[in-house]
């Protein structure tokens, strides 16, 4: 009887491993191959590379074109993020504390960047800003403004979540009873309490925007070569060098996501299923 239960438990274990191992090995394969390619001397028609080296990574960080593209990406992403925080903070604050109608509207609006494919938005942007009074196509400005729009869901959501946690309305009231003007109360009482939400907003949007390709390619392209455009342009050159680039980029994105996600994790409530 006991042996029977033991065996059944082992069979149960076996079943889920038969699912998990192939799925996660397949998910790991492209990443593992790229990582191995980035640190191997030569990998010809053999199952495993000839030897390991850090030469490609070193060479990458000495390539002026890569460094320039990295710099451009940082400028665009940091500028759009700074702008979106300045613009969205008051909106999130007012929607949360004063105008419930606005909150309803915002809940619908934040979905649009997700619901509409970037290619579709690009069609409109290209026609609106190719010429006319605001000829922004081909300049980093159009990317910065567009990135403010597509970062909205991340920034707005994390700010609202943060505002929910601090009871902003009551804090404002208390600060005003003590004689602070609304602006001063917001800057000196509310803002410092939103640090966590702002941090999450920054890291999540940074990692998302650094990986953005569609707008960068269609609206600006090689006229302002960002990291993704650079990667696209060299994707058919030396596999090892490009692998080093992909791995570097991915590591960068991972660190940002991890910094933004650090404290939250999804854990099933059942510690162990029967």
């Amino acid at each position: 009887m006991r042996v029977d239960i033991e065996r059944r438990r082992r069979d149960g274990l076996a079943l889920h491993w038969w699912i998990l191992v192939p799925v996660f090995v397949s998910l790991a394969l492209p990443l593992a191959a790229t990582l191995l390619y980035a640190v191997s001397t030569r990998w010809g028609a053999t199952l495993l590379p000839d030897g390991l080296t850090l030469e490609w990574l070193q060479r990458l960080w000495q390539t002026p074109r890569f460094l320039a593209a990295f710099g451009r990406s940082l400028v665009v992403v940091v500028a759009s993020l700074a702008l979106s925080l300045v613009l969205i903070l008051p909106v999130a604050f007012l929607a949360h504390t004063r105008f419930t109608g606005l909150a309803r509207w915002m809940n619908v609006l934040v979905l649009t960047p997700f619901a509409v494919p970037p290619v579709v938005t690009s069609v409109g942007l290209l026609q609106l800003y190719a010429g006319g009074p605001l000829p922004l196509v081909g300049t980093p400005w159009i990317l910065i403004f567009t990135y403010v729009s597509i970062a909205l869901p991340f920034v707005y959501r994390s700010l609202i979540n943060s505002l929910r946690g601090i009871d902003a309305a009551e804090l404002m009231e208390a600060a005003q009873l003590l004689g602070a003007s609304p602006l001063v109360a917001f800057l000196r009482v509310i803002l410092p309490n939103l640090r966590l939400g702002i941090r999450i907003a920054i890291f999540l949007s940074l990692s998302f925007l650094i990986g953005e390709f569609v707008f960068a390619n269609l609206l600006v392209g090689t006229r302002f070569e960002t990291l993704q455009i650079y990667l696209f342009n060299v994707r058919r050159e030396s596999g090892h060098f490009t692998s080093a680039l992909v791995i570097t980029l991915f590591t960068f994105i991972l660190i940002l996501t991890w910094l933004g996600n650090g404290k939250s994790e999804i854990v099933a409530p059942e510690e162990r299923a029967s």
Partner: peptide, 22 residues
Amino acid sequence: IAFTNMTSNFAGVPLAFAFIIL
């Protein structure tokens, strides 16, 4: 789950390149 989260961030041009390598 952490690994899944990581792979969900791997998209676009880098993903295409990784598949060319593989």
